[in-house]
Design a protein around this nucleic acid. Structure first.
Lengths: 206, 206
DNA sequence: TGCATGACCACAAAACAAATTCAGTCATAA
DNA sequence: TTATGACTGAATTTGTTTTGTGGTCATGCA
């Protein structure tokens, strides 16, 4: 249990395990596996191989620890978006590449799925708030891109607020709500239906 | 309170109030106003100006009374659909006329809104089941119409199950989910956005 | 001397018990 | 004969005890 005092440098342990990272990793796994409420600080300490008090040298409260992890997830999403969006390409090109990358990220999806389940089943305020934050980040991104695409005359002139909301709801419907009564859809099915509704329209035009 | 003994004919009271109708009306108003759980049989009896025992001469249980009202609502929806759908007209013509009529029906919407709120807030099994029934009736209708429209080459060849699901989710998003964070949309805004996504597509085509 | 630690505490949330509500019955009265 | 509302007990709600958990801090090890 006393694995500290490796070589030290600028206050951080080198050559021995980074305790903060250990805690973050343990907490991430626990939050994704059990949700916010069912994750106890004792459990996190145990998984991280760290005394409980140690957690509180890095994080003031359970909620702050959670926020840090959540912001990590949100940052990662923003990073993905920034990496994939290239304004020399078309709106739909960018959209589908972002979608592709986003659909790959199991680890993030696991946390978010668990949190949305927790919202439905117990209504934990922290998980509710977390989902709201994630939703508003995504909506803000979509809305910004829609405005840009309208300015470029790539999209029809529409209300970006309503349209981004609908696009998001469509994504949620395809990736999680559909699964409540049916076999999950493949990545390609999801993309194909988003394309159908957004790009082409359902109607056969003359 | 003793308003019976009117003229009788084939076992029904004539010239005095129809007690069954009174009960149904009272129960309808109460279910729409307070939901399933918060509606008590004593209350229904009071509103209907009828002794509680009388209700049980017409309906075996509270649940059966509720089912009868729900099936009334569902029948009315089916009637509206049958009245508005004309297979000589296009899929979208029919869709928008049905949408128009459906959006008019305050009384049905009130019951369904109350029930879906009850599902969220308390999770009453009866209201959950009711919403499921309504959903599956609507989905079945949309799916049937989509199959027909595909056969007529009015719609692209797509999966009717997934597409009807998405259309329904879109409708719910626009008519109720949007209202949680924004001012409600007008009927025309709702129709215009459904048209945008389904008929035209968002993209500006060359 | 400094820092990780886990026993410890206060308090929030289960678990349980007591009180109340309400669906459904039935003896009564009109 | 039939509508009725007082009545019953199962199910829910409310109030109380017990348990579990977030957060602290005196201790001991390096």
């Amino acid at each position: 249990m006393h694995a500290r005092h490796g070589v030290r440098w600028e206050g951080k342990n080198i050559g021995t395990v980074d305790r903060k990272k250990q805690v973050l990793e343990a907490a991430s796994r626990s939050f994704a596996l059990f949700g916010y409420k069912a994750t106890t600080m004792d459990q996190v300490a145990k998984i991280a191989n760290v005394g409980k008090g140690t957690i509180y040298t890095f994080f003031d409260t359970k909620e702050q620890l959670f926020d840090e992890i959540l912001h990590g997830v949100i940052s990662e999403m923003k990073t993905i978006i920034q990496r994939e969006v290239d304004h020399d390409k078309t709106f739909f090109d960018n959209l589908f590449r972002v979608l592709d990358s986003l659909l790959e990220f199991r680890s993030e999806h696991e946390l978010l799925m668990k949190l949305s389940q927790e919202v439905r089943d117990v209504g934990t305020p922290q998980s509710q708030e977390a989902m709201n934050q994630v939703e508003s980040v995504i909506l803000a991104y979509i809305e910004k891109e829609i405005r840009h695409a309208i300015a470029q005359h790539e999209l029809r002139d529409c209300d970006p607020g309503i349209v981004s909301f609908l696009m998001f709801k469509m994504y949620v419907a395809l990736t999680s709500e559909w699964n409540k009564n049916h076999e999950p859809l493949t990545k390609d099915q999801i993309k194909e239906h988003i394309r159908l509704f957004l790009e082409d329209g359902l109607a056969v035009h003359a």
